[in-house]
Design a protein around this nucleic acid. Structure first.
Length: 432
RNA sequence: GUGAGCGUGGCUCAGUUGGUUAGAGCACCGGGUUGUGGCCCCGGAGGUCGUGGGUUCGAGUCCCAUCGCUCACCCCA
C-alpha cells in the first residue's frame, strides 16, 4: 500500500458530506421557511465565525462535558493560539453579543443563526462530524412568557415543514436548588449502585443527572422511583416552571413533561426542552434547548443577563420531512432548442437577453437533433421550449411549446434580439 | 473510543456446492424515416468484482490482512 498512499483520495473525509444539486432545494426550503418564521417571532439573523478561541467553548459548554473532552476539532494555529471549530452555536452568538455590547441596543435581543457545527464523533444515522443547525437565542428576558415563545418558535418551524416531533419539557432548577437535589439524587442512586449499568456507575460520579436518561432497561426501572427534579425546585423555579407550562398551554402548543430529560451542556438552568421523535434511528432529538441565565455574565457580559435558546439539527430535520414536503428541484423557465448554425448563434444571443430579463434559460450549445434537445428540455423540467431553426429564422416565426400541455404557438423572431426576448418573456409571464 | 454488518458498472442489487468472454433494473447515449420531450420497443457505452496477500489446475465466490462505508453503544441537534 506504500504506493497507494501517494494517490489522491478524491473522497470527502469521514463524517463530512456533500449536499448535491438534487437535494439542495430541500435545504433551501428549510432555510426559507425558518427565516420567515424567525422574522415573525421577532428574531434577527446574526452570522458568526466558524472558528473561535478554544477557551470560549471550554468556559461555556463545560470542561467536564464529552463535547469539550473528546469531540472538539481543536488545533493550534500559526500564531500558537488554540482555536476550535464551533461544536455549537450559542457560545459564539453570546460572544458576539458581549463583544458588540448588543445589550445597549435594546432591552431584549432576539438572534438566530444558521450554519455548520463540528464535532468529532463516530458518524451514524442522523449524526455527522460536520452538521448544520439553526439556532435562536433570546437574551435579556427572564419571564416565563419568553420560554413559551421560544419553544413555540421551534415547534412552529418543525410543524411548518411537516416534520413530526413532540415537545418534551423539564426544569433543571437553578444554582439555589439544584445542588440540594443533586445530593438527593446521588444518595438515592448510591443506595442501588449494584443494579446500575457500568456506564451509569461512571455517571454517578461525573454527571449524576445523566443516569436519569440511560437507555438501559434495568437502570430505567431503578430511576423510575428516584426523586424528581421538579419536585425539589426552589419556590422561584417552581413558580417559573408552572407559568411556562401555563403559557405554553395558552398558546395551544402540545407538550409533555418529562422529568427524566437532561441536557448535555453544563450551562442549562431551569427550563429545558427537546423535540423528539422515534423515526431517527438511535437519535431522538431533532431540536433542543433551554434557559441559560448566567451564561452571558460568565462570558464577561453584563451581570444577571438571562438567556434562553434552542437549536434544530438540520440533517435530522431533512430525515424527518415527509416526501411530499421535500418538493422538486426547480426547473428552468425556458429551454431553447436550436437547429442549424445560424439559428444556434441567434438562440445563444436570445438566451442571454432572456436571462438578463430574469428568465431562467438553457440550451444545448453543442447542438444535436431536435429529439435530443426536446429530451433535454424535459429533463431540465423546462416550463416551455422555444424551437428555433433556420426555417423559423427565415420565416420570422419560432415555435413556443408549453411543456405541460403540449400547446404550441408562434412567436415573432427578428434580428432585434431585445424585442424578441421581450415578446417571449411576456408570453411566459402570461402562462403563469 | 467499543461492537456488529456490509463492500460487484453513476445508483439499487443478482451472482447456484469456487469452473469457460461477470448479469439485471434505474440512470446515461443513440435509434424507431423527413424537425418535437415525458410511455413503449431496439441498440450502445460503462465494471482490474474496495485493496494487498494466500489456498487452488482455476476465486466475485474460501482464508488472512488492510482500507472504506453503514448501524449500534457512547454522546448529542
Amino acid at each position: 500500500m506504500a504506493g497507494a498512499e501517494v494517490i489522491l483520495q478524491t473522497r470527502a473525509i469521514k463524517g463530512f458530506k456533500d449536499i448535491l444539486p438534487d437535494e439542495v432545494h430541500i435545504w433551501q426550503r428549510i432555510e426559507t421557511v425558518a427565516r420567515g418564521i424567525f422574522r415573525c417571532f421577532g428574531f434577527s439573523e446574526i452570522r458568526v465565525p466558524v472558528l473561535e478561541r478554544t477557551s470560549l467553548f471550554v468556559r461555556s459548554i463545560g470542561e467536564e462535558t464529552d463535547i469539550v473532552e473528546k469531540e472538539m476539532y481543536t488545533f493550534t494555529d500559526r500564531n500558537g493560539d488554540s482555536l476550535t471549530m464551533r461544536p455549537e452555536g450559542t457560545a459564539p452568538v453570546l460572544r458576539a453579543y458581549v463583544e458588540h455590547a448588543l445589550h445597549l441596543k435594546s432591552k431584549v435581543a432576539r438572534l438566530y443563526t444558521i450554519g455548520p457545527m463540528f464535532r468529532h464523533e463516530r458518524p451514524q444515522k442522523g449524526r455527522l462530524r460536520q452538521f448544520h443547525q439553526m439556532s435562536a437565542e433570546v437574551l435579556g428576558a427572564a419571564d416565563p412568557f419568553t420560554d413559551a415563545e421560544v419553544m413555540a418558535a421551534a415547534h412552529t418551524i418543525l410543524a411548518e415543514l411537516g416534520a413530526e416531533a413532540s415537545l418534551e419539557i423539564n426544569s433543571l432548577g437553578c444554582p439555589d436548588c439544584r445542588p440540594a437535589y443533586n445530593r438527593l439524587l446521588v444518595d438515592y442512586l448510591r443506595s442501588r449502585t449494584e443494579k446500575l449499568c457500568s456506564d451509569c456507575r461512571r455517571r454517578l460520579d461525573k454527571n449524576p443527572l445523566r443516569v436519569l436518561d440511560c437507555k438501559n432497561e434495568t437502570c430505567r426501572a431503578e430511576v423510575e422511583e428516584s426523586p424528581a427534579v421538579t419536585a425539589h425546585l426552589c419556590a422561584p423555579c417552581a413558580e417559573h416552571f408552572a407559568a411556562v407550562k401555563e403559557n405554553l398551554a395558552s398558546l395551544g402548543v402540545p407538550f409533555r413533561e418529562n422529568r427524566f430529560m437532561v441536557r448535555g451542556l453544563d450551562y442549562y438552568r431551569r427550563t429545558t426542552f427537546e423535540l423528539v421523535t422515534d423515526r431517527l434511528g438511535a437519535q431522538s432529538a431533532v431540536g433542543a434547548g433551554g434557559r441559560y441565565d448566567g451564561l452571558v455574565e460568565s462570558l464577561g457580559g453584563p451581570k444577571n443577563t438571562p438567556g434562553i435558546g434552542f437549536a434544530i439539527g438540520m440533517e435530522r430535520l431533512v430525515l424527518l420531512m415527509a416526501e411530499k414536503e421535500r418538493g422538486l428541484p426547480p426547473g428552468t423557465d425556458l429551454f431553447i432548442a436550436a437547429l442549424g448554425d445560424e439559428a444556434r448563434g441567434h438562440a445563444f444571443r436570445l438566451m442571454h437577453a432572456l436571462r438578463l430579463k430574469e428568465t431562467a434559460c438553457l440550451m444545448d450549445t453543442s447542438g444535436g437533433g431536435l429529439k435530443s434537445q426536446m429530451k433535454q428540455a424535459g429533463k431540465t423540467r423546462a416550463g416551455h421550449t422555444l424551437i428555433i431553426g433556420d426555417d423559423e429564422l427565415a420565416s420570422g416565426l419560432a415555435i413556443l411549446r408549453d411543456m405541460e400541455t403540449g400547446d404550441q404557438k408562434h412567436i415573432p423572431v427578428t434580428e432585434d434580439i431585445e424585442t424578441t426576448a421581450a415578446h417571449i418573456a411576456a408570453e411566459l409571464e402570461r402562462g403563469e
